[in-house]
Nucleic acid binder design. Structure first.
Lengths: 219, 219
DNA sequence: GGGGGGAACACTGTCGACAGTCGGCACGAC
DNA sequence: GTCGTGCCGACTGTCGACAGTGTTCCCCCC
């Protein structure tokens, strides 16, 4: 089995490894928003050819972590506070659909239970990065449980930008990541209360948008 | 001035032209769903190098027109009827947000007027392809008028898949594209009736989903 | 006639190199 | 001092070639 996973690791292409390396470099803050990402330089530091890093950069561009500037030159993306608000409103719409579908699903009971265990993994303390991961994992799980693959895909397309937004408000207190903020969502789903669930999601997102937009402005 | 516009045309890269060519080739049905798209063959027929067509294909993959199969080989995508339903539910959520934001916007009056003129361009007759374009243009305009750039982006990410779905139900009667189906949306926005607008959008999308899902199944 | 081995093929992954273009800099004319 | 101009460096766009790997098909052996 470990051979299997090892061979799976070996099977991962250079492009995928470069993509992962670049993504974590950006998300870890090693490259600051606005920094220019030159193909030659990155190819040299990653030990791959320009074409390979080029594909990884294009993927990052689609994810929204990187944006095109003058003459096709790429730089690390950053979001204005207005864009943060827009982003979270779209997210609210998508997750609102997710809770609707979860509640309408015949597997609602099982889904609620899965969410209940997931919400327990949300911790009020610890590394900010780890808390962010747990938070995003919870919301992604919510989308997945809707069984709507298009919804999952659309949400994931927003994920990169969300990470940028969260990154901008780096030293945040993160009251939005607290478990208390997520429990009501699960409870509303358990009760099958569509209106309450959607309202809670909306409020959750509005609060998060407000918080991160402020953090963006002050940076 | 004419020099200016010409140089702008020349500025379009080979990658963009290849992308456009491939996209229209797929959308026009020249390549059928499931067809294998080999890099070498396409590079030869387009008169560009493999790297260039490769980038175009990757872009198409992000758009959802092309999907990866065995060993990274790409083929023209197709949607199951279940995915068509999922797709239109996500679209309904996004456009529901769009009408909310348009109505809540201080520029509601102007937006409604713009939509009123756009809806006039929807024709009940003529080329199916042209009608599809007009329909998509109307809905894209709706998203744009919301002023939410993230919403526009998310919608456009779905656009490729929508075209695939519509393409699958090729010989359709297209009652969903009729002007009558769109006028109520505009009227609800003009009245500022959020509930009605969202409900109309939902019904519009549900009807379209049902129609195209059936067309997908029968093909 | 059927099955196994191997060679040829058809792909994609990856790379290094050349060409075009844009921005900055120094230099000279006015 | 300021403007125009030509050079230089940097960066991306594009290309052709090589390598690795499944896949397929043919031939030989049983």
């Amino acid at each position: 089995m470990s051979v299997e996973s090892l061979s799976a690791l070996d099977r991962s292409t250079l492009r995928e490894r470069s993509l992962e390396a670049l993504r974590s470099a950006i998300l870890s803050g090693r490259y600051r928003p606005g920094d220019h990402l030159g193909e030659v330089e990155l190819a040299g530091s990653l030990g791959v050819s320009r074409g390979t890093v080029r594909e990884a950069l294009r993927h990052l561009q689609q994810e929204g972590l990187v944006t095109a500037g003058n003459r096709g030159m790429l730089r690390v993306n950053s979001l204005s506070s207005a864009e943060v608000h827009e982003l979270f409103r779209v997210r609210a719409a998508l997750e609102g659909l997710a809770v609707r579908e979860v509640i309408a699903s015949p597997r609602r009971e099982a889904a609620a239970e899965t969410l209940r265990t997931a919400v327990e993994r949300l911790s009020d303390e610890g590394e900010p990065a780890a808390r962010m991961e747990a938070d995003l994992a919870f919301h992604l799980l919510l989308c997945r449980l809707s069984g709507n693959s298009m919804l999952v895909e659309a949400w994931q397309r927003l994920e990169g930008r969300m990470r940028v937004a969260i990154l901008n408000g780096a030293a945040w207190q993160a009251p939005m990541m607290a478990r208390d903020r997520h429990v009501p969502i699960v409870e509303a789903i358990e009760r099958g209360d569509v209106e309450a669930a959607v309202r809670v999601v909306d409020e959750h997102m509005a609060g998060a948008a407000e918080h991160f937009a402020r953090a963006t402005e002050s940076s």
